Amino acid sequence: MLDTHARKFVQPSIDKTAGALLKIGLTANQVTVISFFIGVSSGVFFYFGFPIIAVSVLWISGYLDAVDGTMARKTKPSSFGTVMDVTFDRLVEISVILGVAFAIPNVQWALLLLSVSIIFSMTVFLTVGAVSEQKGIKSFYYQAGLAERTEGFIFLTLMMLLPAYVLWVTLLFFFVETFTGCQRLLEAKKILEKEEV
C-alpha cells in the first residue's frame, strides 16, 4: 500500500541517488547485489545483539532496492535483474525471520506461520505477474496490496526493536500478509477473467 501510494514522496531522492550511482559507473544489477549483501546482514546483526544496526542496514538495503529499479529504468532493464531483485528481496526477509527465530526461539511457531503467509502472498503475486498481459512500471504486472515491501519492513523493524512484543507483531504481520494474499487472489480472478474474454 505504501509502495504504491507514498512512493511519489521519496522518488525525487531515489532519482538523485540513482543518477549519482550511474555517474560513478555502477549498474542497476551491481546495486541490486550490494543491496542484497547489506540486507542479509540484518538478521545476523540482530542475532548477535545489535538491533539498531540490524534495522539500519535493513532500511539502507530497502532504499537501494528502490534505487536499483530506477537505475534500470534510466538505462536498460534486464530480465535477469528482475529475477535477482525479487529473489534477493525474499532472502533479505528470510534473513531477518531466521535472525529473530534463532534469537527468540519461543516464537518460532509464529515465524513459521508468517513464512507460510509470505509464500502464499508471493506465489499469487508472482504468478499473476507472469500470466497477466498487463505491464506496469516494472517489467511485470505489479499487484498492489495491503502489505507491500515497506509495510513488511515496518513489521520486521518492530519485531527487532520490540522483542517483548515480537509474538504479537509477528501474528499481526501474518494476518496482514494472509489478507494481502487473498486480496491479490480475488483481484487476479477479475483481471485474468477480463483478459480471457
Rank of each mutant, 00 (worst) to 15 (best):
G81M: 12
L98I: 15
L98C: 11
A28L: 09
S56Y: 11
V44P: 03
S41C: 12
T123V: 08
S121P: 02
I14P: 01
I14V: 15
S61V: 11
G49Q: 02
V128T: 15
Q30I: 12
P12I: 08
F45L: 15
W59S: 00
I118P: 02
K76C: 07
T70F: 01
K23S: 12
D15W: 05
Q30F: 05
F125V: 07
G19Y: 04
S121D: 14
T123A: 12
G129T: 00
V96E: 06
S117Q: 08
T27N: 00
L21Q: 02
P105E: 00
M84C: 12
P77A: 02
V83F: 14
W59E: 04
L22H: 05
V100F: 00
R90P: 09
L126G: 12
L114M: 06
S115V: 13
F120C: 05
T82M: 07
T27Q: 08
M71Y: 13
V33F: 13
V116S: 12
Q108V: 00
P12R: 06
I97T: 13
V124I: 15
M84E: 08
V107F: 02
I53L: 15
M71T: 10
K16N: 07
K76E: 14
V116Q: 06
F46H: 05
F37H: 10
W109D: 10
L26T: 09
F120E: 06
V57K: 09
Q30V: 10
K16M: 13
A54E: 10
I34L: 14
T87C: 12
I118H: 01
S115Y: 07
I119R: 01
L112A: 14
F37C: 13
I24S: 09
P77Q: 09
I34G: 06
F37R: 10
V131G: 09
T87D: 05
L22F: 04
G69L: 03
L22P: 01
Q30E: 15
S121R: 00
V116E: 05
L21G: 04
V116Y: 07
W109S: 12
P12F: 10
L21F: 12
A20V: 08
L64Q: 02
V40H: 06
S13H: 08
L114A: 09
D89S: 11
W59V: 11
L91S: 06
L114N: 03
T82F: 09
I53F: 06
M84W: 11
A28G: 08
G49A: 05
V116R: 01
V100A: 02
Q30M: 14
S117W: 04
L114F: 02
S41L: 15
A103V: 01
S13L: 15
S121I: 03
L114K: 04
F120Y: 15
L21Y: 06
T75F: 08
D68H: 10
G43D: 06
P51K: 09
F80L: 14
R90H: 11
A72Y: 07
N106R: 08
G25R: 11
L26G: 06
F120H: 07
G99Q: 08
I24T: 13
S121A: 15
I104P: 03
